[in-house]
């Protein structure tokens, strides 16, 4: 394959174009995936803020019934996998899943370790650090956000509450959203990009191959046949034509050479037959 002109011309071009297009596809897909993930985390964080604002009054009044109803109603929304409210000790106080109530979570697990890595837990985290992804017990992929419930003057000044002013975080809200839709969208984008990439590759490599074959390899093949005919002493039937300008001169030379050979052959035959004197 590497000894032919076609192989030598097309292999490096094919590798370069294919490789570069694949690298572009992978990088572009990675960028799109990051953007979609970041947007989803932003959406989930906003939803967590909305829940916190909706439940603020009920928390201030310590109205557990209203709080539970609000959380249960939001939890019924499509795409919401779970909503939990933890207290400072990590015990689940309110949850959309009743079996989780009054259970304590391990602070070293993913989602908690972000703040509880050191001896003194961090009171704030960046938006992306609040997010974690995992597969839940029902086999569904989940994006979860941990949103801290901060202590406010209304909390530690209220007569019914016991939170000291020095306590910065009262608890956390954990909301889990299904990633099924997100993964489906990403898969659709990926498939479309693969189709476009394959089409670009076929068009580019196929186009270059077709053009080279039409403009270079076929004329060269004709030229080779012409050279073989001249070498074998045969006279080409037709005047060589339809060659590119660079090859046309060579074809003309070969044709002229064959004509000279033929006339020289004819003279020699005439000399052998004795019709032409040898010294003429």
């Amino acid at each position: 394959m590497f000894k032919t002109l076609a192989g030598r011309a097309l292999v490096p071009v094919g590798i370069a174009v294919t490789g570069f297009v694949i690298v572009c596809f992978l990088l572009l897909y990675s960028v799109i995936k990051n953007v979609v993930n970041r947007d989803t985390v932003g959406y989930a964080t906003n939803l967590a803020d909305t829940i916190l604002r909706s439940t603020r009054y009920a928390m201030l009044k310590s109205d557990r019934e209203m709080l539970t109803t609000i959380i249960q109603n939001i939890g019924r929304q499509q795409g919401v996998e779970h909503i939990r409210v933890f207290n400072k000790q990590g015990i689940v106080q309110i949850s959309t899943k009743k079996k989780e109530l009054d259970r304590q979570v391990d602070k070293k697990t993913e989602g908690c370790i972000g703040c509880h890595a050191g001896a003194i837990p961090s009171a704030s985290l960046g938006r992306m650090e609040q997010a974690r992804t995992f597969t839940n017990g029902e086999g569904r992929k989940v994006l979860a956000i941990m949103s801290p419930i901060y202590n406010e003057p209304e909390c530690f000044n209220a007569p019914c509450h016991v939170h000291p002013p020095a306590q910065k975080v009262l608890g956390t809200l954990d909301i889990g959203l299904s990633r099924e839709m997100l993964l489906k969208s990403l898969a659709a984008i990926r498939n479309q990009m693969i189709v476009f990439t394959v089409m670009i590759l076929v068009l580019t490599v196929g186009g270059v191959t077709a053009l080279l074959r039409r403009s270079v390899f076929l004329p060269l093949q004709k030229l080779r046949l012409l050279a073989m005919q001249v070498e074998a002493g045969e006279h080409p039937e037709a005047h060589p034509s339809h060659f590119p300008r660079e090859l046309d001169r060579i074809a003309q030379s070969l044709y002229n050479l064959s004509q000279k050979n033929q006339s020289a052959g004819g003279d020699q035959a005439a000399i052998d037959k004795g019709t032409v004197p040898k010294d003429s």
């Binding site: 590798i15 370069a16 294919t18 490789g19 570069f20 694949i22 690298v23 992978l26 990088l27």
Partner: peptide, 8 residues
């Protein structure tokens, strides 16, 4: 992406 770039 890096692997593809390297191979190419």
């Amino acid at each position: 992406a890096v692997f593809g770039s390297g191979v190419t």
